[in-house]
């Protein structure tokens, strides 16, 4: 199994396409950092208007922790795309290349192949999140320094002391890995149905975008389904920046995501195991 995983990772990381994601993350983070350097304070004070009407907020507001958080928040939509770029390609891309039939004429079982593909996608996801931590957080800390972190929520103004932030980031990144692994599982699942990788990548994005909108719509109609949408739970990492941390909700969200992962990977194995390979 290790050997097969190694091979899969070798295939992923020998492809130029794989590094696009890392480049995109770097570029977005860097552009964001530049913008924050130039006019971050004005931008942020705009959001804090209700607070600054009454209070004098002074000190290093625009610091690495805040910029890191803002980058993570804005990458919320892009990261799933980048995960889908690789995970959506795992099965469909091989079908498209024509190598899938070559793989399947080798003595490995189909469930094994699906699991390997999933694990390899997960490793890629973890590396992408690690890279995100490097460019979004550590680079921001380098550029903007540390400080207390302000977290503007819709109805709450949270301030976290600077010595109380790093561990939260650690937990948030761990959670993000789970959330993005769910995206990888979704892409893999869609990938099993397709013979080219564009379909599953676009389908993943469409699902993420539509469900994210549904998750954020304040309509009673959607309240009933919201707890079942994985997009409502994907942003659970933000919970670690709240005070007090809603551990029960985060735990529940993580559970929902894990169930999605198991369901989607299981579904992929079930479908793929019966699929006629005619590509």
């Amino acid at each position: 199994m290790m050997k097969l995983l190694q091979i899969e990772l070798y295939k992923i990381f020998r492809r130029p396409r794989t590094y696009i994601s890392f480049g995109v993350v770097t570029a977005i983070a860097f552009i964001f950092q530049l913008a924050m350097k130039a006019g971050g304070r004005e931008f942020f004070e705009f959001g804090m208007q209700d607070v600054t009407d009454t209070f004098n907020v002074q000190g290093s507001i625009i610091n690495g922790y805040l910029v890191g958080y803002l980058i993570l928040q804005s990458l919320l939509v892009q990261i799933p795309l980048l995960v889908a770029l690789v995970a959506g390609d795992t099965l469909a891309g091989e079908a498209n290349l024509g190598t899938l039939r070559l793989l399947l004429t080798r003595p490995i079982s189909r469930p094994q192949l699906v699991l390997i593909k999933f694990l390899a996608s997960s490793v890629y996801t973890i590396l992408l999140i690690l890279w995100l931590a490097v460019v979004a957080l550590f680079l921001s800390l380098l550029l903007f320094g540390t400080g207390d972190m302000i977290n503007l929520k819709s109805e709450t103004f949270v301030l976290l002391l600077k010595d109380d932030v790093m561990w939260r980031y650690g937990c948030a990144f761990l959670f993000a890995v789970v959330a993005m692994t769910a995206i990888a599982a979704l892409s893999l699942f869609l990938s099993a149905f397709a013979d080219n990788s564009i379909g599953p990548i676009i389908a993943t994005m469409a699902i993420v975008v539509v469900l994210t909108i549904l998750s954020n719509l304040e309509l009673p109609l959607f309240n009933a389904i919201r707890p079942y949408l994985f997009t409502s739970h994907m942003i659970g990492w933000k919970g670690f920046f709240d005070d007090p941390i809603p551990y029960a909700a985060i735990g529940k969200s993580a559970m929902v995501l894990v169930l999605y992962i198991l369901g989607l990977v299981g579904g992929t194995i079930f479908y793929f195991n019966k699929k006629d390979i005619s590509s």
């Binding site: 209700d50 009407d53 929520k153 103004f157 954020n216 309240n223 919970g239």
Partner: peptide, 23 residues
């Protein structure tokens, strides 16, 4: 002890993670 004005930002901007369900 003083009067505090209301604080609110649109949810679409803050993309809050709220305990599900929000209601």
């Amino acid at each position: 002890t003083m009067d505090i004005k209301e604080y609110k930002l649109p949810k679409g901007i803050t993309m809050d993670y709220s305990e599900v369900p929000t209601t």
